[in-house]
Design a binder for these strands. Structure first.
Lengths: 222, 222
DNA sequence: GTCTATAGTCGGATAGAC
DNA sequence: GTCTATCCGACTATAGAC
């Protein structure tokens, strides 16, 4: 491969990545139907025809954006999840499970509310949940299932249950719900609290409330 | 007014109502942008031009649907909310507040997951939360604020706080999140649980889990 | 790989007959 | 109040020049 061919490939790869970045922002804000290929191309500084060229279709770009989200969230959670998954294989003291669960909820709050770029990801995921489409399987199999199973495993230890059953799963889901509402009902929640945004200290306040509620689940079964 | 004129008015009123029913179903499923006026008119068995005639525009119909949701949910919650609001004006024993909160969470679960028609309402509301538009103010001022304040008032009593502050609000929001996740993440949750739907007994199981978590908040501050 | 130009479809709103 | 017919704008995808 000569330098000329390589530079063409690089250009293509750069356009591809700009389109994915644009897809996260635009699909996140307007949803699949609400986003137009013109918006996507403009935001990426690319040509309209670059979308079908690189991704086959608008839907192909949508799927690629979902895959990108899975990869980035895996980057941010993989170390913690591996630690939890490994710990769950052996007899795990309840105190340690509680510590893991605190770390788990703190991380989820931080990912979902902490960064500006998370706004796009979160909106993308939530819209896909509400109206499951081409990307749901990518998101669910790529990260949601694993994140849920790790949480449920920790809850099982806290409740002294040897196996994860649906009662355990429901408790894990309830814990997750306490975090998720700050995303799904962001506008209502901010208004109720008289806040304009989730600043860093407010985020820590939310994390501490969730941790306290996790503690209650633990003490409730002590 | 003669009989002839009245029958014309009735016909118009019936078309109007059919359009609102269709709007709940179609906007709920596809969102504002995803729904076309042709879908709406077909579903209602009405003519395309009936939408601008009766509601001024597609957006007018959207707002009317939001107002209709507020009215129907108020029908289902007003008695309970008035009872709670009245009780909160006087010194309320914690045991009684706990009972009210159980009734409150049970009612919310039932409204959000219990009826087939709630599927449309819930989807409509969730989509509006994600991308606040013309109907957000109608929904928030018409019912959300009041529902939240009632919950927060009860939590304040449970935590022996004389005033509702943001720490109290956050706890009330967390409780609500435990319910809401079964809506916002319906597909993921069902899949995690290996369920196809929220049947009546599963709904009662969810209600019992939420009640237990509410109890923990109460005992945690005992 | 990227561009312009365009084909083909579907969107919401309106005019005017009934 | 309801209907048909139609306008005009916006959409996605493609063809073909560079």
């Amino acid at each position: 491969m000569g330098a000329h061919v390589e530079s063409l490939q690089d250009r293509g790869e750069a356009t591809r990545q700009r389109l994915i970045d644009a897809a996260l922002a635009v699909f996140g804000e307007f949803g699949f139907d609400g986003a137009s290929t013109r918006m996507l191309a403009d935001q990426a500084g690319a040509n309209l025809a670059a979308i079908p060229y690189h991704f086959g279709s608008k839907e192909g770009l949508y799927r690629a954006a979902a895959q990108y989200i899975v990869e980035r969230i895996t980057d941010q959670t993989n170390a913690m999840l591996e630690e939890i998954e490994h710990a769950l294989l052996n007899a795990l003291p309840r105190a340690k499970a509680l510590g893991f669960l605190h770390k788990y909820t703190d991380t989820m709050v931080a990912i979902m509310l902490g960064s500006k770029e998370a706004d796009s990801w979160a909106a993308f995921i939530m819209k896909e949940q509400l109206q499951p489409g081409a990307a749901f399987e990518i998101l669910y199999n790529g990260m949601m299932r694993r994140i849920h199973e790790a949480g449920a495993g920790l809850v099982a230890v806290l409740l002294k249950q040897p196996q994860i059953d649906n009662r355990i799963r429901l408790r894990a889901i309830a814990i997750f719900g306490q975090i998720l509402i700050f995303r799904t009902s962001r506008h209502s929640v901010l208004r109720q609290l008289g806040w304009k945004e989730f600043s860093r200290d407010r985020l820590e306040l939310i994390q501490s409330i969730i941790r306290e509620n996790v503690d209650l689940v633990a003490t409730g079964s002590a």
